[in-house]
């Protein structure tokens, strides 16, 4: 089953990276451990978005909503109910997937910009609810001091928990993309009409794509709560959704690992430029504008392109 899916060298490199990441908390200051953990959370979110935007070709402009719904679900379940904690953690992604189903069902009838707009209006509805419903969601203050089990709280414990879930999720995402479903999704992106013609129910596949993506966004939301111990309405605001899109763009749309690179770049930029100047969004904006002008396939996509070109050149010389 695994044969041919991953190159041997790549597999070795991945194992090495994983090992380094496992011993990392003992080597570097807590601040960096926290930064890497938040990169992992955002990377998972960006990868779930890339499933529908990069591979599904849908204009999923308000993906942050599912992230926020997952985070709010676990926060509300933990603070307002007496359910066992593991049930709260497991059910939150399903709440996000349910939100994905409902929003997806309404959006999927439309395409392109209209799809994006109705999604944004539905998302803004949820944001406004979370923002104003002081009695239930805490309004614009959000919910703080969420009781996280001690096995996952603290920087180092939450880091390990996030790392394990992150690895499991990207393995799952990888197999989803390599599965017949994933191939169909990509085929529907490239030519929806032909797919319809050979009997693929395009809209249903896209809807499933949205549900799966919102499930993983919900997982990222849970991980966010584990890391931060709080939720606030900004998680549901459209600015965050565009930031995740930028992470995908920074890394590269059509690559699997691109969003991880994008998230790492964006959060490191924010952290390290943020130390020196309060105008870091100015710098981010300039970088982004330059990128769109000169490198529209993203950083990772650019290198991938270069590598394939070089490989082809080497192969040609060999002949």
């Amino acid at each position: 089953m695994f044969k041919g899916m991953i190159h041997k060298k790549t597999a070795l490199a991945l194992v090495a990276i994983l090992l380094v990441m496992l011993i990392l908390p003992h080597m570097i200051p807590r601040f960096y451990v926290y930064l890497i953990a938040s990169i992992l959370v955002m990377a998972l979110l960006a990868m779930s978005l890339n499933l529908v935007v990069g591979f599904g070709g849908l204009f999923q402009f308000h993906h942050g909503v599912f992230f926020g719904v997952g985070a709010y679900a676990v926060a509300l379940l933990l603070t307002k109910t007496t359910l066992p904690k593991w049930i709260c953690f497991i059910s939150a992604p399903f709440v996000a997937a349910l939100a994905g189903l409902i929003i997806g069902l309404i959006c999927i009838r439309l395409s392109k910009l209209y799809f994006a707009m109705i999604q944004i209006s539905l998302g803004s509805l949820l944001w406004a609810l979370a923002f104003r419903w002081y009695g239930f969601t805490g309004g614009d203050d959000g919910i703080h001091g969420i009781p996280i089990p001690s096995a996952m709280s603290g920087v180092s414990n939450s880091y390990y928990f996030i790392l394990i879930i992150f690895v499991l999720c990207i393995i799952a995402l990888f197999f989803i993309l390599k599965s017949p479903f994933g191939s169909t999704l990509q085929a529907a992106r490239d030519n929806a009409q032909r797919c319809e013609a050979i009997g693929v129910f395009v809209k249903r596949h896209q809807l499933f794509g949205i549900i799966i993506a919102s499930f993983f966004a919900g997982v990222a939301g849970v991980l966010f709560v584990v890391l931060e111990g709080s939720v606030f309405p900004d998680l549901l605001f459209w600015v965050l959704s565009l930031e995740i899109l930028i992470m995908c763009l920074l890394g590269g749309w059509f690559t699997f690992a691109g969003p991880i690179i994008g998230a790492a770049l964006m959060l490191s930029l924010r952290t390290f430029i943020g130390i020196h100047t309060e105008y870091w969004t100015l710098i981010l904006g300039i970088i982004l504008a330059l990128l769109i002008f000169f490198l529209p396939q993203g950083v990772w996509g650019y290198f991938q392109e270069k590598w394939t070109l070089r490989k082809e050149a080497v192969a040609e010389r060999g002949q």
Binding site: L242, I246, L249, T281, L282, L284, G285, L288, A289, I292
Partner: peptide
């Protein structure tokens, strides 16, 4: 859209 967003940030 992302380009205009970058302009918005700037």
């Amino acid at each position: 859209l992302l380009f205009t967003f970058s302009l918005m940030l700037i």
